[in-house]
Design a protein around this nucleic acid. Structure first.
Length: 253
DNA sequence: CGGGTTTGACCGGCGC
DNA sequence: GCGCCGGTCAAACCCG
């Protein structure tokens, strides 16, 4: 009887040990994945910053185009940002940290969704405007086009860093256009860097999510939520974990 | 009551 | 000149 119990306990211990080993391997795999994501995120951020600087240079060098227009009609820099939202929601409000006053709404020709017009209401001397419209391709994505630069800090900013539209302090822009561009029908910039390599849809959504938050932790949480909800990512992750388990337990195969 | 939203009217640029 | 279209205005309305 005691002998039988001892054998049973031993088997249980072995099972727990094996499970512990499996979890350890899984943890290691996930740590590597997280590290890889962090690295790619950093690279992405640097890439965006580089593109922004290049666009600034282009704007400066395109003064000959601007010169042909009357001074009054020269538009300030346009910045395009993308926000993921609930597809069912009719709201055109995006949370970018600033306070906006809506002054108009229009149905445009190229998009069945209405376009909303906002002015910055945080400071009377701030004349930044933004247009918000759902993407015709993906109705769960709101496209916000910013015009001008804020001359006041973002509420909650601790160090008075430059305002959002041109500087990605912690959030990221995924697309922007120059002030001289007349064709706004397509996003000018599509970032080619992938956070997780194989799944473009998840990566694209992740880029969108990165835009709608100024908090790195939130970004990471949103990334995890998004990626864990993606079936393709889950399959890829499961395959990686399975490989890891098999490599640790070759006798089981 | 003050600030924000809605919505129809209006204006100006542009192409035909 | 005319019509179309995007952008803005402003009165009415809503809400805390």
């Amino acid at each position: 009887m005691d002998l039988q119990r001892n054998v049973s306990d031993k088997e249980k211990m072995q099972e727990i040990g094996a499970e512990l080993e499996r979890l350890r391997a899984e943890n290691k795999e996930l740590s590597l994945l997280l590290h890889s994501m962090n690295h790619k995120y950093t690279t992405l951020q640097a890439h965006v910053e580089k593109i922004r600087e290049e666009m600034d240079c282009m704007n400066e060098s395109s003064h000959d185009l601007i010169k042909r227009q009357p001074i009054e009609s020269v538009k300030p820099n346009l910045t395009r940002r993308y926000f993921r939202t609930n597809e069912d929601s009719a709201s055109l409000i995006v949370k970018d940290g600033y306070h906006w006053r809506k002054y108009g709404q229009k149905i445009t020709k190229d998009n069945p969704s209405p376009r909303a017009y906002f002015r910055c209401s945080m400071a009377p001397e701030c004349h930044v405007k933004k247009k918000v419209q759902r993407s015709p391709d993906d109705k769960s994505v709101l496209v916000a086009t910013y015009e001008g630069e804020h001359n006041h800090p973002l509420p909650g900013e601790l160090d008075g860093m430059t305002s959002l539209p041109n500087i990605s302090s912690t959030g990221l822009m995924v697309g922007f256009s120059s002030s001289t561009s007349r064709d706004q029908s397509q996003p000018e910039v599509t970032l080619g860097l992938a956070l997780c390599g194989s799944n473009h849809e998840a990566v694209r959504s992740t880029e969108t999510l990165i835009n709608e938050t100024n908090n790195n932790n939130n970004i990471m949480e949103e990334c995890i939520t998004l990626l864990s909800g993606d079936p393709n990512f889950r399959v890829a992750l499961a395959a990686a974990v399975a490989r890891s388990v098999l490599s640790n337990h070759p006798s089981n195969s």
